[in-house]
Design a binder for these strands. Structure first.
Lengths: 132, 132
DNA sequence: TGACAAACAAGAGTTGCTCCTATCTAATAG
DNA sequence: CTATTAGATAGGAGCAACTCTTGTTTGTCA
């Protein structure tokens, strides 16, 4: 919440409610999933507020917007360095951790030209559930 | 085109036109961008045909559907192993190559549980044009 | 406590696919 | 070479997931 003040954002009950739900969740909710969840405690919040708040949070760096192949945008409350496995069948995104991947160097020619903010290894494949 | 036959798909003029444009392109077109391009040579092709064909191509492995943060799905005609830099401002996706990244090992616990089909390192940051 | 900028709810609008139906065509059989 | 038929196409309707607009409410600072 300090983060909000630092960015000239007001601390509203809606934002607090969304933030609390976000840190509770261990998966990668869509805007709609967050809306459904927050709505239980806050019955007349609008979808737009939830969605806008999530985008605002991503701008000040308290959530990540994650890469996806599907149609819905997904948010990631875990902003520590981690990596993703995408199942091409069920579209699920599974987090995993790897020291080797965390320590990857950014290639020189990239570092010279661009400002790199984050890195992530994305594996595509078929998850255990879809293999049967 | 052999690939089409192997997968019991018919070789139609539309598919040939889409395929030709695809291998010409060096960027990461959206379905709509492809539609606009193909339409110039093939004025009465429908958007649906282009989109369906791109999805079909991705299923038989002649294009990749790539991770993206925006609302549009992007296709990648370069299916050799390479990596992506995403500019968080202009949303451009820039390809880069790195032998170090190509040789990354898949962690044991992932290999045991899931079938990995491809791997890619995704860097997020700000590109040279957006830095000014 | 009053003024003002920021945030909110509700609903309309937009984008980017995805599905449906009637028509057409490429490939196989005769 | 023609008939058959499974698969493909065009065009348009339908739908999901945002995104914008408008009028109202709420924090914050003077």
């Amino acid at each position: 919440m300090k983060r909000c003040k630092h960015n000239n954002l007001k601390v509203t009950p809606q934002r607090i409610a969304i933030y609390k739900k976000l840190i509770e969740l261990k998966n990668h909710p869509s805007a709609d999933a967050m809306f459904q969840t927050v709505r239980r405690d806050f019955p007349n919040i609008s979808f737009d507020t939830v969605n806008r708040t999530l985008l605002t949070f991503s701008e000040i760096g308290i959530v990540d917007v994650i890469e996806g192949h599907g149609r819905q945008r997904r948010f990631d409350p875990d902003i520590s360095c981690h990596h993703h496995f995408h199942c091409v069948k069920c579209k699920e995104i599974i987090d995993f951790y790897s020291a080797e991947y965390d320590n990857l160097e950014i290639p020189e020619n990239i570092k010279k030209k661009f400002t790199v903010l984050s890195k992530r290894v994305v594996l595509n494949g078929i998850c255990d559930k879809c293999t049967e």
